[in-house]
Amino acid sequence: MSRWITNISDHGTFVSLPADLKISNAKRLNEVFNEVLKSGAGDIFIDAKGVYNISPFTACWFAALKDQLVELGRSIRIIPPEKEYALHQYSNLGIETYLKPEIPQTIPKKYSTFPVTKLTEPSYPLAGTVSKLLTERLRKVENFHKALHFAIREVVENSFEHGKTNQCYMCAYSVPSKQMVRLCILDTGIGIPASMRANPKYTNLDDLEAVERASQYGVSSKAEERGIGLYLLRDVAEKNEAELTILSGHAKIDISKSIRRTYIESPFSGTAVKLTLRTRKDFYYISVADWEAL
């Protein structure tokens, strides 16, 4: 039994969460997620008192966990964080309202937030609406809004097309004082490694190789030549020194100016993409080109 599950009884399963709930702690969060789902009958009581850091990834993580438990006929109860910032994010990112829909969502004025939301289809207008919301209070930087629009569009489309799922979760916020947007899109589909290995060309890839190859040009889970969205997103992240994290199966890949690959013992059954973008004067989106150059 995981050290995070403190007690399993007829009354339910008691879980004490690690203090850091960011994607950087994916190993522990995956462990909790997988074990809670396997932990038998009864309600789940989650103690988040000691949590000090909550991110859009955490919000999506809670929402996905809740929905999977509800599908199993179980419910989830949470003791909210005690630390002021974590409690603020717990409410601001919509976790509180997602878990208890009777609690109205309140968003402080200093933030532009897209609270955690379940998407049941890759809604066409969504990417434009969310990118506009997140950038309206940031300084106007050429290309930034479009790059964000593109990122949301591609990741949501990929979840539905390659993840073979009919739902995914999105949460995002921007902080004008830091000129930053942070977002997460998470699905509980088959994950990138399984999706890639469905292509006869890539049956032998391990999870880390599969996730990295998925972000290269023309590499896709489909037999035809596809696989372009993640490649362009990676290009945007690398050239702007943004932070792009892809978590799927046993793999976690962090892409910024350089790339870091981490093998995660406890697999994530789905895909989470986390992106942090900062406005900068020379923000790169797509190389300038005209028709003459073609």
């Binding site: 290309n143 479009k146 593109f150 040009y217 023309g218 030549e225 372009i228 989106y285 797509i286 190389s287 300038v288 080109a289 005209d290 028709w291 150059a293 073609l294």
Partner: peptide
């Protein structure tokens, strides 16, 4: 920027 994206993708397809 959408036009730029089409040109970029067309170039990648031709290079491929």
């Amino acid at each position: 920027l959408d036009e730029r994206l089409i040109i970029h993708l067309a170039k990648l397809r031709l290079e491929q």
